[in-house]
Structures are given as C-alpha cells and as structure tokens.
Write a protein that binds this DNA or RNA. Structure first.
Length: 139
DNA sequence: GCCAACGTTGGC
DNA sequence: GCCAACGTTGGC
C-alpha cells in the first residue's frame, strides 16, 4: 500500500469539487514523471490532496482521498500517454498543512515536493504521511 | 504579476 | 541528436 500526494489548482478543481462528486477522475497530468507515478497507483492507496497556490491562501495539503480505480487511458484524450486514475473523497484535514510547514519538516528534505516544485504527483513515505497527519491536528 | 525551473518543440 | 527558443507550472 503506497501513499501519494497530488496537486490541484483549486480554481480549476478543488477538494470541495471532489467532495461534491464523491469520486473524481484525476486527469490533466502531462509530466512524464508524474504520469509514471500515476501508473504506479493501486486501488486503496492513500492520497493527500494539495492545493497549489491560488488566491485562496498559501499552497497546502487540505484533504485526503483514496485510489478507487487504477490507471486507465484518459477517455477524453486521444493520446495513449495521457492516463488517469479515479480518486474517492475521504476527508478534509482539521487544519490545512502549508507547504512552508512541510518544508520545515525534516521528513520532506529529499521529497520532490520540495526539490522539484513542479511535479504534480509525488510519492509520500509513511514517515512523511505521519508527519502531515500530526501537523494537521497541531495548533 | 513576476520569474525560476523545467519540459517540449523544431531547425539544423 | 543537439540546443535555442518557447511554453507551462507553481511559489512568492
């Protein structure tokens, strides 16, 4: 069972949208490394939903989801490289965990989230997951 | 809104 | 196959 973090631009598709739909098709991923991560996702994997910087506050992890359907070709795209997964809404964090806090946490020193800011699908270790959960209930 | 970092495209 | 030019992402 693996953990992931996926970024979304909240003005395009937000955690609220995922909650409303219950299950969402995670499409639009074009970066080759991000696509490789999508292909590695298994049903049941845990996912952190991250809002990238918009007008609604700093970039932050805001919610939780689960992979409910493993990778398949994007039905709306004509290029077989463009694949998608389905994510199911699980919940919202008690408190968003800002990127600045994540950067300050040692667990993420080697993470692509910090090292390669533009990667939109990132693997998350168990230790990193645990730290985000701790930060989400901290004051 | 700016710009750094990174990907992609296309001329050669 | 190289690399300059251009486009995009995303933090600030």
């Amino acid at each position: 069972m693996a953990n992931w973090l996926v970024k979304t631009e909240p003005s395009a598709y937000s955690l609220d949208d995922l909650e409303r739909e219950g299950t969402g098709v995670w499409d639009g991923v074009r970066n080759p490394v991000a696509l490789r991560n999508l292909r590695a996702m298994q049903v049941g994997d845990r996912v952190l939903i991250y809002h990238s910087g918009g007008r609604k506050g700093p970039p932050a992890v805001v919610g939780l989801a689960r992979v409910v359907k493993a990778v398949y070709p994007d039905p709306k795209a004509d290029d077989p490289r463009w694949v998608v997964v389905d994510l199911g809404f699980v919940g919202r964090l008690r408190r968003p965990v800002a990127l600045s806090e994540i950067k300050a946490a040692g667990e993420f020193e080697t993470s692509a989230l910090v090292r390669q800011g533009r990667l939109s699908v990132v693997a998350v270790t168990d230790a990193q997951w645990k730290r985000v959960m701790e930060l989400a209930v901290a004051q």
